[in-house]
């Protein structure tokens, strides 16, 4: 036991400096966002600002239009999370509880879609969105972000609903509840943990998305998300380093908070993709 305690201390001695370097980019970003631009250039290795410059945040939020970008990111993320979670629940429930004809074929189709070489599908998707008249609209971006089959989520719901005992539905049926009422009143509430995992994983995917919003807002700067806005901000205000750092903090803080608060669910979801 004494040996273990010594090993413990040795590990901390190694890992603490390593982790500090590991997250240094984030620390550097936060502290830079509180300096003046002159201080940023001249302060050398000194991390702490002489005086906290909240002005960088007002500039990024206002002149840099990050208030708009933030709003777009929130709307798109919430929209995509709701659609994806809903579709995955419904599909997972049908697959998990009902042995309908064609179930095997459908599961095979899902797997096939995952593995076959796809080519550059964003071009046809772009054309569909154009034909639907949704190009350069926020609804279009949400739809594309939520599109596709989210196999991992569907499988998570499927395995969960399958393992629930048959007696649950039978008892409900004796009480006169139909398929829909059984699902809504009994099964759905039971699957809260899976819903949480799905919602949080999709939240992180969509919030971090760059390629889709970039392509679908090319001609519409006011629809940019935080990630796309950041990319264009650097192009336009290349010398405003501290404004950029403040904008980065604005973009990353929500995702870091969500992750730290709900990491249990996220880690479970990630581990699940290996086990399946």
């Amino acid at each position: 036991m004494k040996r273990n305690r010594r090993l413990n201390r040795l590990l901390h001695l190694l890992l603490i400096p390593f982790c500090l370097i590991w997250i240094y980019p984030f620390l550097w970003m936060i502290f830079s966002s509180l300096k003046t631009n002159t201080e940023y250039i001249s302060s050398g290795l000194r991390l702490l600002p002489q005086q906290l410059q909240w002005d960088n945040y007002t500039r990024a939020w206002g002149v840099g239009q990050f208030s708009t970008y933030f709003q777009n990111s929130v709307v798109i993320t919430v929209g995509a999370v709701i659609i994806v979670t809903l579709l995955s629940i419904l599909t997972g429930y049908a697959l998990g509880r009902v042995n309908f004809p064609g179930k095997k074929a459908l599961l095979f189709l899902f797997a096939a879609v995952l593995f076959i070489p796809k080519g550059y599908t964003i071009i046809p998707v772009f054309q569909i969105i154009k034909q639907l008249g949704l190009l350069n609209t926020i609804e279009g971006v949400i739809l594309v972000e939520a599109s596709g089959v989210h196999i991992i989520f569907i499988l998570m719901f499927m395995t969960f609903y399958r393992t629930l005992p048959v007696e649950l539905t039978e008892a409900a049926e004796i009480d006169g509840a139909g398929f829909l009422r059984t699902f809504l009143q009994i099964m759905l509430p039971l699957s809260k943990p899976i819903i949480a995992t799905t919602a949080i994983m999709q939240f992180i995917f969509t919030w971090n998305s760059f390629f889709v919003p970039l392509v679908f807002t090319l001609n519409k700067p006011e629809l940019r998300t935080l990630a796309v806005g950041m990319y264009s901000f650097v192009g336009e205000y290349s010398i405003d380093y501290t404004g950029m750092a403040a904008a980065a903090v604005i973009a990353l803080l929500p995702i870091i908070i969500v992750f730290v608060a709900f990491q249990k669910y996220f880690i479970e979801g990630v581990s699940g993709s290996v086990k399946l």
Partner: peptide, 22 residues
Amino acid sequence: YRTLLFLPVVTTTAIVGVVLKS
């Protein structure tokens, strides 16, 4: 430690790219 080592994974790649660039 797990949280700290995992942090880069969940942060927006495009934003991180810009920060690393500077």
